[in-house]
Simulated assay, not measured.
Amino acid sequence: MQLLIADLHLHPSQPDIAKGFIDYLRGPARQASSLTILGDLFEAWIGDDYRGDFEQQIIAELRACAEAGTRLAFMHGNRDFLIGESFAADSGCALLDDPTVVELGGQRVLLLHGDSLCTRDEAYMAFRQQARNPAWQAQILAMPVEERLALAMKLREQSGEANTNKAEDIMDVTPDAVIELMQTHDVRIMIHGHTHRPAVHDLRVGEEAAKRYVIGDWRPGVGWQLRVEGDELTLESFAI
Rank of each mutant, 00 (worst) to 15 (best):
M1W: 06
L3M: 11
A6K: 08
Q14M: 13
P15D: 11
G20H: 04
G20D: 05
F21K: 05
I22S: 14
D23L: 10
Y24W: 14
A29E: 05
Q31Y: 07
S34V: 03
T36M: 13
T36C: 15
T36F: 14
G39T: 02
W45N: 00
I46A: 03
Y50D: 10
G52I: 08
Q57Y: 08
E61V: 07
R63N: 05
C65T: 09
C65F: 03
A68W: 00
L72A: 11
F74N: 00
F74Y: 06
H76S: 04
H76V: 01
N78M: 00
D80G: 02
L82M: 00
V102Y: 00
R108Q: 10
V109G: 06
L110W: 08
L112E: 08
H113K: 06
D115C: 05
R120H: 14
D121K: 00
A123G: 07
Y124G: 07
R132K: 05
A138P: 02
A142Q: 15
P144D: 02
S159I: 09
A167M: 07
E168N: 14
D169Q: 15
D172P: 12
P175V: 10
D176Q: 14
A177T: 07
V178S: 01
I179M: 13
T184Y: 05
H185D: 01
H185S: 01
R188A: 05
T195K: 07
H196C: 12
R197W: 09
R197D: 09
D202A: 14
A210F: 06
G216E: 00
R219E: 11
P220I: 02
V222F: 05
R227Y: 10
R227W: 13
E229Q: 13
D231H: 13
I240W: 13
